[in-house]
Design a protein around this nucleic acid. Structure first.
Lengths: 161, 161
DNA sequence: TTTTTAGTTCTGTTTTAACAGAACTAAAAA
DNA sequence: TTTTTAGTTCTGTTAAAACAGAACTAAAAA
């Protein structure tokens, strides 16, 4: 038998719990489901940055199925990852902080992806509404502009680092 | 009695309907409810850019209550507006295209508002995880940087115009 | 081989969001 | 004044999301 030290149950102080709640609500507003939001927030706030399935489960007091689903989609979307420790069967989940920059970039990209649709709209609009069409064209031009400029910004940041 | 011309029922071709659907799905992914998404998309695609309550209702085939709620929240969030025509009791709703730039700016701003929470997190984190904390600090610095640079970009655009 | 463990998947329940339809309201028109 | 119109608000229904709990699985340990 391996001597796997069972850690004492995770303790969160009230400040930490409040922050998890606030972060959770924030993420929910972006469309992320409650449990997923809480897990992600917990992994950001917790003193212990690597937590096992059961530690997360007990801390948040939700069912195994909910935790399982949350962890899996968080991994699929690259927001968390896990490591293993030799001689330990459990997986240790942790926030994928180093990837957040890329995640942010992805988020912005998908946000700007509406422009393809906008261009489709403009292409099929009647020519009887020139002013409206001009406004729409402006919006499209602005988003295109934004896309280019954001790339510049990202490069600038990477050079600073 | 006033002679208010009842317009012929709105006709949308299949291309237009498909686009409304695609735009609708896009907006739904950002957390906007289905009917609201459809109304907003309709007002972008329709040849007639100013539509009455009932025209929208008949075109989309949904209930009055759904339309009423959708229109009101779209107005609250500044995505649409309405005009009136003298001697006509109806309101004519239209996409608030000229405000979309501001809406985009607002959207980005609220997106970046997570940084306040991130700073709260960093402030209360244990000092026993220096590497993690450093990564978190980097994320925060990046978002702060992004905020400033986005302002520059918006100004740059406004000068181009 | 049997047993334990860490997590997954399935099924049913609860909760919440979204909507329909009817009753209602306020202002304008008749 | 009454009637019509344009939209709102209320109540009940439907549909979908989120979750709990138990059964299950696969790999490791005993």
């Amino acid at each position: 038998m391996r001597s796997i030290k069972t850690r004492q149950i995770m303790e969160l102080n009230q400040t930490q719990r409040n922050l998890i709640e606030k972060l959770g609500v924030f993420h929910e507003k972006t469309g992320m489901p409650p449990t997923e939001s809480r897990v992600l927030s917990l992994l950001l706030v917790s003193d212990e940055i690597e937590l096992t399935f059961d530690e997360i489960r007990e801390t948040l007091q939700v069912s195994k199925s909910a935790i399982s689903n949350a962890l899996n989609t968080l991994m699929l979307t690259n927001k968390i990852e896990y490591i293993t420790k030799s001689g330990d069967r459990k997986r240790y989940f942790r926030s994928n902080l180093s990837n957040w920059k890329k995640n942010a970039a992805d988020g912005l990209h998908s946000l700007l992806s509406i422009n393809a649709l906008m261009k489709e709209v403009l292409a099929i609009r009647t020519d009887k509404t020139p002013e409206f069409n001009k406004d729409l064209g402006d919006v499209i031009a602005f988003i295109d502009f934004l896309q280019v400029e954001l790339l510049v910004i990202f490069n600038k940041w990477n050079q600073l680092k």
